[in-house]
Design a protein around this nucleic acid. Sequence first.
DNA 1: GTCTTTCATAACCATATTGTTATAGACAAA
DNA 2: TTTGTCTATAACAATATGGTTATGAAAGAC
Lengths: 113, 113
Amino acid sequence: MTPSERLDATFTALADPTRRAILARLMQGEASVMELAEPFAMSQPAISKHLKMLERAGLISRGRDAQRRPCRIEGEALAAATGWLEDYRKVWEGNFKRLDGLLAELQANQGKA
Amino acid sequence: MTPSERLDATFTALADPTRRAILARLMQGEASVMELAEPFAMSQPAISKHLKMLERAGLISRGRDAQRRPCRIEGEALAAATGWLEDYRKVWEGNFKRLDGLLAELQANQGKA
DNA sequence: GTCTTTCATAACCATATTGTTATAGACAAA
DNA sequence: TTTGTCTATAACAATATGGTTATGAAAGAC
């Protein structure tokens, strides 16, 4: 997978609220598919599909514990996507500085979401 | 548009290499639709569709200069996506100072972020 | 006015995404 | 072996995405 394809897969995986919620849950530690599915009004196969997309993006990996397939976060893909966005944000902040004093506005809005 | 829907739109917009290349070009400054389309082996309507998705995500805005519709980057959506990823990366890397607080916030936002 | 340039929209097609239900596989427990 | 639990896959449907060509609209140029 090329770096561009990896970014495709990562941003695609992050573009769904269910998958972002799954990542939020996994920030607390490993969880099985059933545990991950529990909060959602959605079938187990639907969750398995979401996990497959997260895995394809390298955002999670899966182990084996009897019948369970515990999922855990993998930081590398997260770091790659963050790094890409950070680079752009830095350039953009540089542009703001050159164009006007609007950097303050951007920074003020950073924490909002 | 809710914050979650905005993240959906932003990450969806970033998940395509053509749109990321358009953003890279716009980092250098404003450009018209024709100027943006020039490097791509793709029709002008295809570029217009990509610009529409970038605009819907709030990643760009468009002005008016005679027949031209110059596009420019809007930093806020970029900052929001960066901020979201940064929070997760910090938790993952263990660098976040108020780990409990952020985890609580991430959990509270599960359904909408 | 008429022409040209720039851009958007409509109609269409192929593929991908997102969910469903039904079923099969892996493994533990009885 | 039989049963039950956890997870993946197959088959299907609805909608979204990403491209095309044809056409329309807006604005300057002639």
